[in-house]
């Protein structure tokens, strides 16, 4: 890729792993501009990069853009998204999927972003002090790091549970506060309140609906009037016919696949 071309608003540049890579991927970048900027992707300093190759890591990208200036943070995600990333407290971290990703690179200064957009050549991902971990090295590392001593595991569990309990307590407290009458005299009904209400789940709703229906049915009379008897007889014939029709359809199907040639 000798020349870089402007397509739509994107600028494309080849991104090499090492200096002697022969067939690099082309990455596409532009300034991250949306109506409402979030804190972690500040206006004017954030560069959106798509088609980041699967093996690229944060440090590698910093390496790649080191000519533009110093990078404050790099955020890799599966799809470009404008929403704020919610941090969920997970006990077991989400597994890393190896695939093409998008990256938000935040520069320290606005000028550095402009410089980055004017770059004609990117540095390779690998530099002397950082090598992207791939292949056997990565797998061995992963294997070894997942073996933890029981003591460490225990500590992890304890800290997580402690935090969880704290959060749960906070939530409970909040709910209790809700139960207090507000200025206009309204009370929010919650799970734990004095006023008992049914749980709002699908199952419970279905149950109530079924009960209603049952009640309705109980009031009906069956096989009472002559027309009802006549109808039920007809229904029997209809069900026989339906079965017959279904079977006929099946036969047509089988016939179409020429399965009736026994030899």
């Amino acid at each position: 890729m000798k020349a870089t071309k402007r397509v739509q608003d994107f600028k494309c540049l080849p991104l090499k792993l090492t200096a002697d890579s022969e067939a690099p991927h082309t990455i596409y970048m532009k300034e991250h501009i949306i109506r409402e900027h979030t804190k972690d992707k500040p206006q004017g300093r954030t560069l959106l990069v798509v088609n980041v190759p699967p093996y690229a890591d944060e440090k590698g990208l910093v390496n790649a853009f080191r000519e533009a200036g110093s990078v404050q943070s790099v955020q890799l995600c599966l799809k470009p998204s404008t929403a704020d990333v919610k941090v969920i407290n997970r006990f077991i971290p989400e597994p890393n999927t190896t695939t093409f990703r998008a990256a938000y690179i935040v520069f320290k200064k606005v000028a550095e972003l402009d410089k980055a957009l004017k770059l004609t050549k990117l540095q390779p991902l690998n530099s002397e002090d950082h090598q992207v971990k791939v292949g056997m090295k990565k797998w061995i590392d992963e294997y070894n790091s997942c073996i933890v001593l029981p003591k460490t595991l225990k500590e992890n569990i304890e800290t997580f549970m402690k935090q969880f309990d704290e959060n749960a307590q906070k939530a409970e407290k909040k709910e209790k506060e809700l139960e207090q009458e507000d200025d206009e005299g309204w009370v929010t009904v919650t799970k734990r309140g004095k006023v008992q209400s049914f749980a709002r789940t699908e199952k419970v709703e279905n149950k109530i609906m079924q009960k209603e229906e049952k009640n309705k049915k109980r009031k009906e009379l069956k096989n009472f009037y002559t027309f009802q008897i006549r109808e039920s007889k007809m229904k029997h014939i209809v069900s026989l016919r339906q079965k017959f029709e279904e079977d006929k359809k099946k036969i047509v199907q089988i016939k179409q696949s020429r399965r009736f040639k026994p030899f």
């Binding site: 397509v7 494309c12 792993l17 991927h25 082309t26 088609n51 190759p53 699967p54 190896t98």
Partner: peptide, 28 residues
């Protein structure tokens, strides 16, 4: 993902960068 720009008859089109994919196989 994995697209590269190609110029066909003066127009810019996008195709899958097969050479880069093969190099990726080696890298990974």
């Amino acid at each position: 993902n994995a697209l590269k720009p190609v110029t066909v008859n003066g127009e810019t089109k996008y195709r899958v960068n097969i050479e880069a994919l093969i190099e990726d196989f080696r890298i990974l």
